[in-house]
Simulated assay, not measured.
Amino acid sequence: MAIHFHEEDLPSAALFGPGPIAVDTEAMGLHPGRDRLCLVQLSDGSGDEHLVRFSPGSDYAAPNLKALLGDQGRLKLYHFARFDIAIMQYYLGIMAAPLYCTRTASRLVRTYTDRHGLKELVRELLGQDLNKQQQTSDWGAPEINDAQRDYAASDVRYLHGLKEKLDQRLAREGRTQLAQACFDFLPARALLDLAGWDEQDIFAHV
């Protein structure tokens, strides 16, 4: 297992196996437009993680990264897809779908708890403990230290395994089709967020 660190784009020689690719982002905050995208993390589930860091003032050109994320034939795995695809749409100009969101799947099948964070999911379903100490660190700093890199990599390290476990539970509870409908809607939900309807339910009666 290795963590590969890149500046501004994936190198053309970066190899990813076939099948789903796990994706996560780190930003200066949770508001696209105000808070800039700093890091995109990727893993094909083979054991290596790739981190792409964007500097202040970046033009976010990243042609290799965009080609990978924009591939409509490759499923992208997220933990909180709503935010990740929104901020990548804003800065990279692509909708990184089709997608699968482990947090959404968890909410559909782990109805016995209100704890749907990645740390809780990984502990319960995979028996691993995640160190979340770097979650609120400065991702815009001039240097990303080793602890930050390992934290960022861990956010995509377990998504393939979580999907396998969550798919089993979705099938068991008869909610596979419902989950897929939610995943299919998430790009529209992200676009609504970016357009200013992030705090409003436009489907509500009042």
Score class of each variant (00 low, 15 high):
73 G>L: 04
55 S>E: 10
75 L>K: 07
59 D>C: 01
71 D>W: 14
44 D>S: 11
72 Q>W: 01
72 Q>L: 11
54 F>I: 06
48 D>T: 01
49 E>C: 12
56 P>G: 07
60 Y>Q: 12
70 G>R: 12
43 S>F: 02
69 L>C: 00
66 K>V: 10
53 R>W: 11
52 V>G: 07
53 R>S: 13
64 N>K: 11
73 G>Q: 14
64 N>Q: 15
51 L>D: 02
65 L>I: 12
72 Q>E: 15
54 F>T: 06
64 N>D: 05
70 G>M: 08
42 L>C: 11
50 H>W: 07
58 S>Y: 10
48 D>K: 13
71 D>T: 03
47 G>F: 15
76 K>I: 03
42 L>G: 04
55 S>A: 14
53 R>M: 08
43 S>P: 01
74 R>S: 08
48 D>Y: 08
45 G>F: 11
73 G>W: 08
62 A>R: 10
66 K>M: 02
61 A>R: 15
58 S>K: 04
68 L>D: 04
78 Y>Q: 10
71 D>E: 14
66 K>F: 04
58 S>N: 06
78 Y>A: 08
69 L>K: 00
50 H>Q: 03
62 A>I: 00
67 A>Y: 04
76 K>E: 04
69 L>E: 00
72 Q>T: 15
62 A>M: 08
76 K>T: 01
56 P>N: 10
75 L>V: 05
57 G>C: 04
58 S>E: 09
52 V>H: 01
62 A>G: 06
75 L>Q: 05
48 D>L: 04
68 L>T: 05
52 V>E: 02
78 Y>G: 03
51 L>N: 03
58 S>V: 12
57 G>F: 10
42 L>W: 07
82 R>P: 02
46 S>F: 09
72 Q>C: 04
70 G>Q: 04
59 D>H: 07
81 A>H: 02
65 L>M: 09
73 G>Y: 09
80 F>N: 14
43 S>N: 01
80 F>L: 10
58 S>H: 08
46 S>H: 11
49 E>R: 07
54 F>K: 11
58 S>C: 15
82 R>H: 13
78 Y>F: 15
59 D>E: 13
59 D>I: 00
45 G>C: 14
46 S>I: 04
74 R>M: 13
53 R>P: 05
76 K>C: 08
75 L>T: 09
68 L>P: 02
71 D>N: 15
80 F>K: 00
42 L>F: 12
62 A>P: 02
80 F>Q: 04
56 P>K: 14
71 D>I: 02
76 K>A: 01
53 R>N: 04
73 G>D: 07
77 L>P: 01
55 S>K: 11
47 G>K: 14
81 A>L: 07
44 D>Y: 10
70 G>E: 13
49 E>I: 06
60 Y>K: 01
79 H>M: 00
53 R>I: 06
48 D>Q: 06
79 H>N: 07
55 S>L: 13
81 A>S: 02
70 G>T: 13
70 G>A: 13
66 K>Y: 00
74 R>I: 15
60 Y>L: 03
74 R>C: 05
79 H>R: 05
80 F>G: 09
54 F>E: 10
69 L>W: 06
78 Y>M: 01
54 F>N: 06
52 V>Q: 11
